[in-house]
Design a protein around this nucleic acid. Structure first.
Lengths: 216, 216
DNA sequence: CCCGGAGTCAACCGATCGGCTGATGTCGTT
DNA sequence: AACGACATCAGCCGATCGGTTGACTCCGGG
């Protein structure tokens, strides 16, 4: 029917894993109402492809070698592309979620989502509706709800610098020498770091920094 | 030809991501010489399925909710299954590689491997040949080459337990209370942890633990 | 122009850590 | 039976850490 063909949702897949690209292509091509127009293996290629093929929805992985996903999303929204970007990633680390959505992603799903959820998410994204993985959604809510409560502020450049040295086992005195500041200043930075990360000591600070992708 | 059908390699896919399962199934079913007999979404199901279907090769993900991949591999080799297990995982963390191979995996590939490499790997695995991703192979070599040189010893279960609490900002005294041991013992464990990880203090220990995939 | 954030520094103090030496008991292996 | 790895515990010590309070500068936004 002519009506149906008008409702077919066109897709572009951007993922560095051939297996995943094939999986998505197969999944959507064999389902009625979807058509995969093309695939790209990194963010830069992805932006080009989307510009040429103008799909309804872009399924975008984050963390790809050569062309990060977040940068690609920002580029697309910056260009005013009509395509909706649906982030489809393996792990839901703190550091990925927020930047991706800020950059203009319409949705954020984890790869372990069942087929139907994926289909629904793509249809929703095509309509411009925001779709979030339950796990991601709850995280976002708690993030917004607790701005000062659970200390989720970003570290300053200097603080990150200090934290990196802490992670290497550098003592406060050594850090002071390394950064050409006094030991007192190092301690001040650390106090701020602990507050921002909600950590009790340097060990916990390093741990949460790794959890949030600030280190590693 | 009758000869060809005898050479068809049968597969079972074990992965918690539907997308990946579909990707692999599509990839192998559409290629000549392979047939996917079934899929499972965790290690326990995987073991059952392999026992029933007796495939030539099992494509196994590690890190699945409910039934770890390494345990499944150990179970299969323990049962003397003839199926070869090919580990197919996303990231190549230190903590995964060695246990999987020790458990009896025939090969270890990363999901970002190109199609042809995957096909070749499966054929090799079916023949009983060991196939390692270049990245993994070089890591293993360096691991074997430098056993005492760069302090790469594994932590004991108790030590890991202590380290996990350290990463949460727990003090030695609190750790002692939590684990029903004395503070002195906690310190002893920590001294050993520092030595094994080559870390100067608890912060550095947490950092290297994250780097090596022991934590996170 | 004033405010606030970031970065810098100081002095003090109690709590904690990390190193050291040495000891006991349990495993599994040899 | 002997051995090494692991886990447990003790006491002592100096070094380091983390908290607190207060203060100075620079810079950019309102």
């Amino acid at each position: 029917m002519a009506e149906d063909s008008a409702r077919v949702i066109t897709l572009v897949v951007v993922d560095d894993h051939p297996v995943v690209r094939d999986g998505l292509r197969g999944m959507f091509d064999s389902a009625p109402g979807f058509r995969v127009l093309g695939e790209a293996s990194n963010g830069v290629e992805g932006v080009d492809l989307v510009a040429r093929l103008d799909p309804d929805v872009v399924l975008m992985d984050l963390r790809m070698p050569g062309g990060g996903g977040v940068a690609a999303i920002a580029e697309l929204t910056g260009r005013g592309t009509r395509s909706k970007v649906l982030v489809l990633t393996t792990y839901d680390t703190d550091s990925d979620t927020l930047p991706a959505i800020e950059a203009g992603a319409t949705g954020y799903l984890l790869k372990d989502a069942p087929r139907d959820e994926l289909f629904n998410a793509v249809r929703a994204a095509a309509d411009g509706r925001t779709v979030l993985s339950p796990a991601v959604a709850s995280r976002l809510v708690s993030r917004v709800r607790a701005p000062g409560t659970a200390g989720h502020e970003a570290l300053s450049a200097r603080e990150r610098e200090v934290l990196e040295l802490v992670a290497k086992g550098t003592s406060n005195r050594e850090i002071a020498a390394e950064l050409f500041i006094s030991e007192a200043t190092v301690k001040t930075h650390l106090t701020h770091i602990f507050a921002k990360l909600g950590a009790k000591d340097r060990a916990a600070a390093v741990a949460t920094a790794y959890e949030r992708g600030i280190l590693g």
